[in-house]
Amino acid sequence: MFKDLWIDLDASAINKTGAGTVKRLVGLDAICPMFIGVRAPGMLRTFILELPRDSAPLPEIIPASRGLYFTVQITGDEILPDHASLILSSSAVGYNEIFASIAEDLYSKLHALTKKREVIAGFLSRVRLWQAFFEKQGDDGLSEEAQRGLYGELRFLKDHAFASAHNLETAVLSWTGPRSRQHDFQFGHAAVEIKTSTSKQHQKLQIASEQQLDETTVGKLYLYYLSVALIESGSDNLPSLVDDIRASLSLHTGALSEFNNLLIEAGYIDSQRSKYDSTGYSTRESAVFLVEKDFPRIRENEIRAGVGDVKYSISVAQCRNYEIPVSELAVSIKEVC
């Protein structure tokens, strides 16, 4: 959206004498003026939201995070007397490309709002969403493990949650993994944990905590296992799966908006899709296990006092006695969605 404008701003900031921000007004009809800019001499991209001074939140309302720097400036001039500037900046030049996506997201979500309090609330909400994005991201996009995990969760969402649901928005909201909940999907009292593996023989699944496969905290706990082969430049990759899901939601604007928010929280943005195009996936096997009885796992109440940060692995072969038809899981999904 602002590609050419960023190029112009970068050029102006490079030629600027002394410190300061070169900025341009965007959204002429917005109720709160918005600017994008580049701060010299550091060449950091910036988004600025202007609003009345008495409406400005405290600077510490948004804690510091990797990738972003937030501050509030109280200023005034002849054009905008007694006003405040909410300033969001890239914290390093290396984050400038991602910040371009952040600025476009803020503009697209805020410029049509008609009440100033809605603009402020929307701004703060989107900034927190992008902070969650940076918590999942490495400096060069999602790691291979994170890509594989996200692919598995999206494959389950499309092939099983959507296939069994009557309401696609409810199905999207069942995807709780990006929000760091205890399980990847929650369907009422039933939860689903997704594990995606690329190993060929004697497959083991990595369990992140003593709570992840503790079925005593939910009504039913299912483990969805997906075995995939990596295919160099395969057509079934992470971006293509995202596109397929968006196409399924194209007539459901609420569900699509929520899905896009969850992608950001999961660490995925479209401007980085070229990083993920080269890794394709081919499904070798999928299975559903019901976690119960003597299923190989550790429960939280089995941990001795003083022991924490438990991580362990389980053998897929030892889970086979607990395999159930996928139709049984579909029943739990249909009851909620």
Rank of each mutant, 00 (worst) to 15 (best):
I269W: 03
R148S: 06
F295P: 01
L173Y: 06
E215G: 09
E302G: 13
T176A: 06
S240V: 11
N15K: 15
M1R: 05
L223G: 01
G219W: 13
A56H: 02
F134G: 02
H183G: 00
H160T: 13
K116Y: 04
G27K: 06
E215Q: 12
D159W: 08
A103Q: 09
G27M: 09
T217K: 15
D270P: 03
Y225S: 03
P52A: 02
Q203G: 09
L88G: 00
S125G: 08
K195Y: 03
G67C: 07
C319H: 12
G37C: 08
D277I: 13
D270K: 15
P33G: 03
E285T: 12
T196P: 01
R155D: 07
L263T: 07
A163W: 09
L221S: 04
G254H: 13
R53N: 07
D29C: 07
L113M: 13
R128L: 13
R148Y: 01
F133E: 02
F133P: 00
W6G: 05
E60H: 15
I245A: 00
D29G: 11
S143R: 10
H111Y: 15
E193P: 03
Y268E: 06
L58H: 10
F185I: 03
A171R: 04
A229R: 15
T216L: 10
N261A: 10
E323V: 05
L88N: 02
E300K: 13
L205E: 10
E144P: 09
S250K: 11
R284L: 12
V242C: 05
K293E: 11
D29V: 15
R155P: 00
S332W: 04
I36E: 05
N237K: 05
K16T: 07
Q131W: 08
R128Y: 07
L205F: 14
D243H: 11
A191H: 14
D82M: 10
T283L: 08
H160M: 09
Y151N: 01
L226R: 01
R126F: 04
S108P: 01
D8I: 10
A103T: 08
S240R: 14
K3G: 01
I298N: 04
R39T: 15
V326D: 07
Y281H: 08
A165I: 07
V336E: 12
F99N: 02
S278A: 15
P59C: 06
W130L: 04
W130E: 02
S65F: 06
G280C: 10
G149N: 02
L213I: 10
P59W: 03
H189N: 11
E323R: 09
